[in-house]
Amino acid sequence: MASVEKALSLLKNLPRVNLGNLKPLPGRRGKKPDRRGQHGGKNRGFGDGANNLPRMGFEGGNVPFYRRMPVEPYYKDHAFRKQYPPLSLLQLQRLVDLGRIDTTEPIDLTTLCNTKVITVNPHLKHYGINLTDEGADIFEAKVNIEIQWTNEIAIAAIEKSGGTITTKFYDLQCIDAMVNPLLFFNRGIPIPRCKLPSMDVIEYYSDAKNRGYLADPELIRQARIELAQKMGYNLADPSQDPLYEMLTKRKDPRQIWFGLSPGWVVNLKHKTVLKPNDPELIEYYQS
């Protein structure tokens, strides 16, 4: 009876059996509660209990799964998303070749909109232009371009041909001003102070890989070299370039046009520029 020995040896290592740890066998013991009163008995009024079950597929009042509309969340909050109308490198090269863009000056959103080829509408949440990489292999213009969204290949195409690129954020008020400056100046309101990027894009504009305008210039210089090594082209030394001044020209983060500062009012009729003298205004508009 080795099994007895084995079982009893198991018992030896268990806690001591005492008055506190005894249990009866599982199962119901004792009396059932008295079911008294008018409806207390065994018989129910209407059929037996099974007839009162809800129908198959009933979800307790929810719309059941076979009648539920499928949810497609791809366009959720589309009215609030930032839109960037595309501009390909092929289009940019064509504009340059046709003389619609002067490459001896820095290119920004106003330059592109003045070509009347690209439409940017701030009422459609257009936060600027997305420079796409289509035509990257034939792009050869040497430009200093400021763009709102781009990708790595487009950056490489610009820099390979000796140009420079910056991504800069503009809020919708600034976009409205830059799309049609003439209309804006006729309103007679001061040039807006460009806001900082919102939280969803501040990472993008702080990254040197995207040539963000908030990134460290030293990191941008390293990123240019890294990208050249990655894509396999020789990066020309910009300091030796005769267009060095133009190529390294950058706006202030609060500035939206070269030569004009936020807070100024441009009077086209009298061809004057009004600048604020109030120290509070100066403090507000300073970078």
């Binding site: 009876m1 099994s3 007895v4 079982a7 009893l8 018992l11 059996v17 249990k23 066998l25």
Partner: peptide, 14 residues
């Protein structure tokens, strides 16, 4: 030395 198992007339805690 009763055999511990759940059966009548054997070792049972119950």
């Amino acid at each position: 030395g009763l055999f511990p198992r759940k059966c009548v007339a054997y070792f049972r805690i119950d």
